[in-house]
């Protein structure tokens, strides 16, 4: 269990060295992405002007306030409350995010499945767990909303955040096929029979 501080973007070797149960803190650029963003990018042929090569994306749709473009709010948006959402809904977008845009890190809650695990080992990527429902705290790690693209999808726009000390986040899926979710899920299913027996259920 090691801890890493990453200044974004990162190289393939940096994510390949990560193992399940390591922790990572991010600094610099982080992109915010959600269901509608990816439906439009991968099903409806839209493109973003952002360079996401070697970067991290967080599954999110923030509470942001339009204040007009200023020096401290160059995108026109000030962050109010920014956290994460359930990643599983966006499972099928992991591979194209990595192969078409060069994304290396996906951040979210609840984990992803086999398809994403395979993409992580084929291309070199990881999933970092952030605590869902802890957005008040996580907002304090965000310095600024630097830019926004595909903003007709607001709040599911493509957000470019500048972050400082974003973490520690837990490596819960790595590039070597490791997944804490699979481990925990298999262990929990292994306890199903005992739980049902304790309820007097005949199986």
């Amino acid at each position: 269990m090691a801890h890493y501080d990453f200044n974004m973007p990162v190289a393939e070797a940096q994510v390949r060295q990560l193992k399940v149960n390591d922790t990572v803190t991010l600094n610099g650029t982080l992109f915010g992405i959600r269901d509608a963003t990816q439906i439009h990018m991968f099903d409806r042929g839209r493109k973003t002007r952002f360079d996401m090569n070697g970067h991290a994306v967080i599954h999110t749709a923030p509470n942001a306030k339009w204040v007009g473009e200023t020096k401290s709010a160059p995108s026109g948006y000030e962050p109010i409350c920014i956290g994460t959402t359930t990643s599983a809904r966006m499972e099928r977008f992991t591979r194209p995010l990595m192969s078409e845009y060069g994304v290396r890190i996906i951040i979210g809650k609840g984990g992803l499945s086999e398809g994403s695990a395979a993409a992580f080992s084929d291309i070199g990527g990881v999933y970092l767990a952030i605590v869902g429902g802890a957005a008040a705290l996580e907002t304090t790690w965000i310095e600024q909303i630097e830019e926004v693209d595909l903003d007709d999808l607001n709040p599911e726009s493509l957000w470019k955040f500048r972050v400082k000390g974003f973490g520690p986040l837990l490596v819960s899926m790595d590039a070597h096929g490791g997944s804490l979710y699979t481990e925990v899920n298999q262990a929990a299913r292994g306890r199903r029979a005992a739980a049902l027996a304790s309820l007097g259920v005949k199986t």
């Binding site: 509470n63 109010i80 920014i82 956290g83 994460t84 605590v131 802890a134 008040a136 705290l137 907002t139």
Partner: peptide, 27 residues
Amino acid sequence: TGRAILGTMIKNIMVAEATDNLLCQDT
């Protein structure tokens, strides 16, 4: 891991009150 995550959740409840902010981004 469970203890660390509960700790983050409890800290978040305090940060939300101290900064007068929403607990979770999902309204």
